[in-house]
Design a protein around this nucleic acid. Structure first.
Length: 574
RNA sequence: CGGGGCGUGGCGCAGUCUGGUAGCGCACCUGCUUUGGGAGCAGGGGGUCCCCAGUUCGAAUCUGGGCGCCCCGACCA
């Protein structure tokens, strides 16, 4: 490809709305153009990387026995009503009407469509298992699209769905897909980790996420080097936390709680400081509401935070919110900031996190304005209706397996695999007949992988002050051939000859034949990050030499005889 | 959905407070010089100042309404 005729326009300036490095570099390198919030065009240059990513995905999934198909982007509401998600999915689902006033949506995912297809075609256990995938444009109307391709509204995703007669078959395919994903991300040269994850609105039991480690990642994960345990903090569990020391004992009334005045002190930190105790000796009581419209109280240690994903799962609700001021006052008889478990009768449930089980003589709100209680004991003064794991796990918490401290880091979620079970097959009547002639819902798995996001993640991991450093498998071109002074006959002829030779060899080469100054060409070369750089210039040519270097190691430059250059490139690309 | 900010040549911005014929840098076109790390000089093209309505002799600028975009938050009792 001759750059002088190619659709590739770089910019020197960083667009003002690009915050993360991958977004800045993809924009500056002319790979993507924004059309609207979270909606991008891939330019020919950008699309080459996207295509390479798709090719890797296809290769590995085909190898894992999955079959590619293509489903509609626009889907009728009926299917979503059947699965229940027309109600559940909320505003992220882009809904629309056709000319006959029929409801449709732009698919954010395709469980309904694939299940609908399979239930019509598959009758017998003899036809199972089946594993189908597509690479498709999806649309999710995110609250706040940002970070370029990392969190767009319209995006390219590979999604696969498997159908099974039993759990063992699902387990086998799940493992195959997990292995395929590992091969895919390894092929992309990414530093990634597999973590246990919450299954979210898709539903189902087991699930794993593939995280590319990057400080700009939007997901938090904890890991234990000792045991290998790794999980998204939405899902992560911790071993038992060390018990905090008992709070101060009351001299006059050692066998009952004592009410103390805490005027205007509503936060754990304020009360702890005022009373001279540690936040870990306090009990925090939060009032939540959900679509079930009942108020529940949740108790957690004062220095810790509630994991709302765990709480929503425990309550089996879709949407959770902290209760309003009015609801809190109605439930506790006090303003926000003074809730506690003692005498809390107006909520239906008091759910206590395991972190508060070992607490003794703790401090909590008194359910009265400007007052807290000290010296409170479980059993004697209050009793939760249930215990649960609601802890948001943090840095240094003990690993649930080894007990060693875990580390917290950030990751970009590039893949997510689920064991769905029969959630969709049951609600949508996707059944098969077993060997005894009985009808059963199929067992399903589903497997997502963000194409654009993975390419962006590769840039997050591969860049320097001058631009992108592509992992070779995702690079738009393998070789950048620069004719430094194309107006010089000798230089041009040598570069043209080499260009032809590289093409003969099947090398993906971008030939910079533009009438630009050397400085511009070098800067652009660094920016677009093509792995191998060849420079034909007057200086070297007088000695019959061509210079080559690798983008990953820009300072190391080598000379090679003109005649050997193409062979040398072939060698480098081996 | 709350709070804040911004819409002015392709991109980044000034001008708006205090109304008076729209400017700068980059990019683009022409010419000359330059040519191994984003060149210099000279000349040139390109803008419904987001949209609608209003105030005014006169609106990018003031008023009202709308649209779009960006950032923060939507959570620790």
């Amino acid at each position: 490809m001759r750059w002088s005729q190619y659709y590739l326009y770089t910019t020197r300036e960083v667009p003002k709305d690009a915050e993360v490095i991958s977004h800045q570099l993809m924009t500056r390198a002319g790979m993507i153009k924004k059309l609207a919030a979270g909606i991008y065009t891939y330019t020919p240059f950008g699309f080459r990387s996207i295509s390479k990513m798709m090719a890797i995905v296809r290769r590995e999934l085909d190898r894992a026995g999955a079959m590619e198909l293509s489903m509609p982007a626009v889907q009728p509401a009926e299917l979503w009503q059947e699965s229940g998600r027309w109600q559940e999915y909320g505003k992220e689902l882009l809904r629309m009407r056709d000319r006959h006033d029929r409801d449709f949506c732009f698919g954010p995912t395709h469980e309904e469509v694939i299940t609908d297809m399979v239930r019509h075609d598959v009758r017998s256990y003899k036809q199972l298992p089946i594993n189908l995938y597509q690479i498709q444009v999806k649309f999710r109307d995110e609250i706040r699209p940002r970070f370029g391709l990392m969190r767009g509204r319209e995006f390219l995703m590979k999604d696969a769905y498997s159908f099974h007669a039993d759990g063992a078959s699902l387990d086998a395919t799940y493992q195959d897909m997990r292995d395929a994903y590992c091969r895919i991300f390894e092929a992309c040269g990414l530093d990634y980790t597999v973590v246990e994850a919450d299954s979210g609105t898709i539903g189902g039991s087991s699930s794993h996420e593939f995280m590319v480690l990057a400080q700009t990642g939007e997901s938090a994960i904890v890991r234990c080097d000792e045991s290998g345990y790794a999980a998204n903090t939405e899902k992560a569990e911790a071993g038992e936390l060390p018990a905090p020391p008992p709070g101060p004992a009351s001299e006059e009334t050692p066998d009952q709680p004592q009410q103390v005045a805490t005027p205007g002190l509503t936060t754990v930190e304020e009360v702890a400081e005022f009373l001279g105790v540690e936040p870990s000796q306090m009990l925090k009581t939060m009032i939540y509401t959900s679509e079930q419209e009942e108020l529940v109280a949740v108790a957690i240690r004062g220095d810790r935070e509630i994991n709302e994903v765990k709480l929503a799962n425990h309550l089996d609700v879709k949407h959770l919110a902290l209760a309003s001021e009015g609801e809190v006052t109605g439930a506790t008889g006090a303003p926000v900031g003074f809730a506690g478990p003692v005498g809390l009768t107006k909520v239906s449930r008091l759910i206590a996190d395991h972190s508060v089980r070992s607490m003794s003589r703790f401090v909590c709100g008194a359910n009265a304005a400007d007052a807290h209680l000290t010296g409170v004991e479980w059993g004697r003064d209050a009793e939760p209706t249930e215990w649960a794991d609601l802890l948001l796990v943090g840095e240094g918490d003990p690993c649930p397996s080894s007990g060693k401290p875990m580390t917290l880091s950030r990751g970009i979620e590039v893949g997510h695999i689920f064991k769905l079970g029969d959630k969709y097959s049951k609600s949508m009547g996707c059944q098969f007949l077993n060997d005894k002639g009985q009808g059963n819902p199929m067992i399903m798995g589903c497997y997502g992988l963000g194409i654009g996001r993975t390419v962006a993640a590769a840039i997050e991991q591969g860049n320097d002050a001058d631009g992108i450093i592509w992992p070779r498998p995702l690079a738009p071109f393998e070789v950048l051939l620069i004719a430094l002074n194309p107006q010089d006959d000798e230089v041009r002829q040598a570069a043209e000859a080499l260009y032809g030779e590289l093409q003969e060899r099947g090398v993906e080469v971008l030939y910079d034949d533009r009438k630009e100054r050397p400085g511009v060409k070098f800067k652009d070369a660094d920016l677009i990050g093509v792995p191998v750089r060849l420079v034909v210039g007057k200086r070297g040519l007088t000695e019959g030499k061509i210079e080559f270097s690798l983008r990953a190691n820009p300072r190391e430059r080598h000379s090679v005889d003109v005649a050997d250059a193409a062979a040398k490139v072939g060698e480098l690309l081996e």
